[in-house]
Amino acid sequence: MYRRLYTPPLPRPFKYIKHMLLILCCVITLRESTAQPSLEALNPPLVSFNFVANGTSLTSDADYINPFGERYQVRTLMFYVSRIRLSHSVDTNTGYDEEYHLIDFSHAASHTFSVKAPKGTYDTIQFMLGVDSFHNTNGAQAGALDPLHGMFWTWNSGYIFAKFEGLWARSSGVDIPFAHHLGGFRPGEDAQRLVLLTLPPHRIIEVKEQHNPRIEITVEVSRWFNGKHALSLAEYPSVMTPGAKSMLVADNVSTIFSVQ
């Protein structure tokens, strides 16, 4: 009977169990509070790219005339976008959304995607055109950066930041192919370009519940040829490696975007 009633004292370590639990709770609480502030919003804003040539909607079977009077057709048009950041005035911004997006003219689904943004009003969008040095030098990637998309130079490791292919002819005569594959991340060859677009007053977006704001970015293909430098197809029918030509074309590509 006596033995039954006897409960042995708690072994020593159990005496501190309350302290340990308290410490664990503190750790968890503090860990939560130091975590990066979340960029998620209930209704993430959508960014979409609308392709036009000389102001009219771009199609792959139509002829267009570039600023040098050269007739061309578009077969392929693809580019990488990342480090998207929405901001308002100088000190309010969403932080960088580091996800990579491959915008492919031939795949409409790739033209629109959502970006992470907390509630707020935004009048500026910026993004990086291209792929940063880290992702160019760290082996097999997945998702938008999967080499399966054909945007990777297999013989000279590195991503093709933007690809523009099609047919062209001077004024009349036989169509011949042109191809601009630009990229380059090494010092002296950097073809990444920062694009910063100010939203006109009627396009300023507000991220809030029960509302899907949209940022419509116009891609004016004709500026690929003369946005910053005059690059006629006669002179630049083919750009296939990182280097000086890639950087010239990248300058132009950084000007094809606008919000109207």
């Binding site: 160019n136 030098t137 760290n138 082996g139 097999a140 990777f152 297999t154 013989w155 490791s157």
Partner: peptide, 12 residues
């Protein structure tokens, strides 16, 4: 020396 990472070499 054109390949900068072992993982992407087989692509060539």
């Amino acid at each position: 020396g054109g390949i900068n990472h072992l993982e992407v070499q087989p692509l060539a």
